[in-house]
Amino acid sequence: EPEARKIVEKLINNGLSPEDVKRWAEKNNNPEVKKAAEEYQKR
């Protein structure tokens, strides 16, 4: 999901860690963003 990846990169560029992004995604019920954050961590 390229859109989710863009969101993850934007949040990380704004100073969030991938863990923060995953928590944000869970709080906002956004499994695509959570998955993208996990993939981002593996890179």
Results as ranks from 00 to 15, higher is better:
1 E>K: 11
1 E>F: 12
1 E>Q: 13
1 E>L: 13
1 E>C: 13
2 P>Y: 15
2 P>D: 15
2 P>R: 15
2 P>W: 15
2 P>S: 15
2 P>L: 15
2 P>H: 15
3 E>D: 14
3 E>K: 08
3 E>C: 14
3 E>T: 12
3 E>S: 12
3 E>H: 10
4 A>Q: 02
4 A>G: 04
4 A>H: 05
4 A>S: 06
4 A>V: 06
4 A>F: 06
4 A>K: 01
4 A>M: 04
5 R>Y: 15
5 R>N: 09
5 R>K: 11
5 R>W: 15
5 R>P: 05
5 R>D: 08
6 K>C: 14
6 K>M: 13
6 K>Q: 13
6 K>G: 06
6 K>S: 12
6 K>E: 12
7 I>S: 02
8 V>K: 01
8 V>A: 05
9 E>D: 06
9 E>N: 08
9 E>K: 08
9 E>C: 15
9 E>A: 10
9 E>I: 14
9 E>V: 09
9 E>W: 11
10 K>Y: 15
10 K>L: 14
10 K>V: 11
10 K>E: 14
10 K>N: 13
10 K>F: 15
10 K>W: 15
11 L>K: 01
11 L>E: 01
11 L>W: 10
11 L>Y: 05
11 L>D: 00
11 L>I: 02
11 L>R: 01
11 L>F: 11
12 I>K: 02
12 I>W: 04
12 I>T: 02
12 I>Q: 02
12 I>M: 10
13 N>K: 14
13 N>A: 15
13 N>P: 02
13 N>L: 14
13 N>C: 12
13 N>G: 12
13 N>T: 10
13 N>R: 14
13 N>D: 09
14 N>H: 12
14 N>D: 14
14 N>P: 00
14 N>G: 12
14 N>I: 13
14 N>Q: 15
14 N>K: 14
14 N>V: 09
14 N>C: 14
14 N>S: 15
14 N>T: 11
15 G>V: 03
15 G>R: 03
15 G>A: 03
15 G>K: 03
15 G>I: 04
15 G>S: 03
15 G>H: 04
16 L>Q: 04
16 L>H: 06
16 L>N: 04
16 L>R: 04
16 L>K: 04
16 L>S: 04
16 L>F: 13
16 L>E: 03
16 L>Y: 13
17 S>W: 03
17 S>L: 05
17 S>K: 05
17 S>I: 02
17 S>Y: 03
18 P>C: 09
18 P>R: 03
18 P>V: 15
18 P>E: 04
18 P>W: 14
19 E>M: 07
19 E>S: 06
19 E>C: 08
19 E>Y: 05
19 E>R: 05
19 E>V: 05
20 D>C: 10
20 D>G: 06
20 D>Y: 05
20 D>M: 09
20 D>F: 05
21 V>W: 03
21 V>H: 01
21 V>R: 02
21 V>L: 05
22 K>N: 04
22 K>W: 11
22 K>E: 06
22 K>T: 07
22 K>G: 05
22 K>V: 15
23 R>A: 10
23 R>I: 11
23 R>F: 07
23 R>L: 12
23 R>E: 09
23 R>N: 10
23 R>W: 07
23 R>G: 04
23 R>H: 08
23 R>T: 08
24 W>V: 00
24 W>R: 00
24 W>L: 02
24 W>I: 01
24 W>F: 02
24 W>S: 00
24 W>C: 00
25 A>E: 00
25 A>M: 02
25 A>N: 00
25 A>H: 00
25 A>K: 02
25 A>V: 00
26 E>Y: 04
26 E>C: 09
26 E>K: 04
26 E>D: 11
27 K>D: 12
27 K>C: 13
27 K>T: 09
27 K>M: 13
27 K>Q: 13
27 K>R: 12
28 N>R: 06
28 N>E: 07
28 N>C: 14
28 N>M: 12
28 N>Y: 11
28 N>W: 11
29 N>R: 06
29 N>H: 09
29 N>V: 04
29 N>G: 12
29 N>M: 07
30 N>F: 15
30 N>P: 01
30 N>E: 12
30 N>V: 10
30 N>M: 15
30 N>T: 05
30 N>K: 14
31 P>C: 09
31 P>M: 12
31 P>H: 09
31 P>E: 11
31 P>S: 08
31 P>K: 07
31 P>L: 11
31 P>D: 10
32 E>Q: 12
32 E>S: 11
32 E>G: 10
32 E>H: 10
32 E>L: 13
32 E>V: 07
32 E>R: 07
32 E>Y: 11
32 E>T: 09
33 V>S: 01
33 V>I: 09
33 V>D: 01
33 V>W: 03
33 V>Y: 03
34 K>R: 12
34 K>H: 11
34 K>Q: 09
34 K>I: 12
34 K>Y: 15
34 K>T: 07
34 K>M: 14
34 K>N: 05
35 K>R: 12
35 K>V: 07
35 K>L: 10
36 A>Y: 10
36 A>T: 04
36 A>H: 04
36 A>P: 01
36 A>D: 01
36 A>Q: 07
36 A>I: 13
37 A>T: 03
37 A>V: 13
37 A>R: 02
37 A>E: 00
37 A>W: 05
37 A>D: 00
37 A>H: 02
38 E>H: 05
38 E>G: 04
38 E>P: 00
38 E>R: 04
38 E>W: 06
38 E>Y: 06
39 E>N: 06
39 E>G: 05
39 E>M: 08
39 E>K: 05
39 E>P: 01
39 E>Q: 08
39 E>H: 06
40 Y>V: 03
40 Y>K: 00
41 Q>T: 08
41 Q>P: 03
41 Q>K: 10
42 K>H: 10
42 K>I: 10
42 K>A: 13
42 K>M: 12
42 K>W: 08
42 K>R: 13
43 R>G: 07
43 R>H: 10
43 R>V: 10
43 R>M: 13
43 R>P: 05
43 R>A: 12
43 R>W: 14
43 R>I: 11
43 R>C: 09
43 R>S: 10
43 R>Q: 11
